[in-house]
């Protein structure tokens, strides 16, 4: 995994948290429903943050654990996101919701990472850090997409429009796949960071697209805007992924043919 001009984990985390939170706040508090798609864009950057953490921790030979870690991320994320939003509503300061959720998720992630490393003794040096990042990504993806669908930061709105309608189900599973699939689909010794990261954008955009389609039932115009923005981002990043895969495969990218010489 030699990387030229790679983004560091700190840069990816900073972008994920800042863009994630800013998107959630603009979408939830600006009062302009058509800006809801910004929360989805925040969720895409948070997806990338989670995918990079999965990439770091799973490079230690966690093969079949890759999907489990993605599910763990959204498991920690959904608890923290709902707690944070409900807390913000209880104290009547909705602004606090996403930050409380994020803080709780980071704490849960750190505790789970410490348990895995110190008690179960997995002894992976980056475990604590990566699980903290993954939990943070999970909560931002879930809060971001929920706020995008409901167009509000108020817990009762999210409970009515996202949870009791059931749209939480596609958000949950597509959010989890966005975090786990980029690395899972590139598993192997010749995986490169930029390819996996472009793939993370593309998976995040699919989650945004489907959440946007679902939110057409809540707010048709805002939902359509989110879906179209998601579709455009997906198209561009998917093309980018194929281009990078072509670059990495080199002469191995063939239209058809027999097995390589000496393979039989």
């Amino acid at each position: 995994m030699s990387e030229v001009s790679a983004e560091t984990a700190n840069q990816i985390d900073a972008k994920g948290i800042v863009i994630g939170l800013v998107g959630i706040y603009i979408a939830g508090m600006s009062g302009i429903p058509y800006l809801a798609f910004l929360a989805g864009i925040g969720a895409i950057f948070a997806t990338k943050m989670g995918a990079n953490a999965v990439r770091s921790v799973c490079s230690y030979g966690i093969g079949t654990g890759v999907p489990s870690i993605g599910m763990l991320a959204l498991g920690m994320g959904i608890i923290s996101a709902m707690f944070g939003l409900a807390f913000g509503w209880m104290v009547d300061i909705p602004f606090l919701g996403p930050i409380v959720g994020l803080a709780l998720a980071l704490a849960i992630g750190f505790i789970v990472g410490t348990l895995a490393n110190k008690v179960i003794k997995l002894n992976i040096p980056v475990m604590e850090r990566c699980l903290t990042e993954i939990a943070g990504a999970g909560v931002l993806v879930l809060t971001g997409l929920s706020v995008m669908v409901a167009g509000s930061l108020e817990f009762p709105d999210i409970a009515r429009d996202v949870v009791s309608t059931g749209y939480i189900a596609p958000i949950f599973i597509l959010g989890a796949l966005g975090i786990l699939h980029p690395f899972n689909a590139s598993l192997g010794p010749d995986e490169t960071q930029d390819r996996t990261m472009v793939h993370a954008y593309s998976c995040g955009a699919i989650a945004m697209l489907i959440a946007g389609i679902c939110s057409i039932a809540i707010n048709p115009i805002a939902g359509a805007i989110s879906a179209v923005v998601g579709l455009v981002i997906w198209y561009v990043t998917f093309r980018g992924f194929v281009k990078l895969a072509k670059r990495d495969a080199g002469a191995g990218w063939v239209g058809t043919g027999l097995l390589p010489p000496g393979a039989m």
């Binding site: 699939h181 689909a185 590139s186 598993l187 192997g188 793939h199 990495d248």
Partner: peptide
């Protein structure tokens, strides 16, 4: 994406 990605990574 998984077919392209995994084959390329090998």
């Amino acid at each position: 994406t998984s077919y392209i990605g995994r084959s390329t990574s090998q």
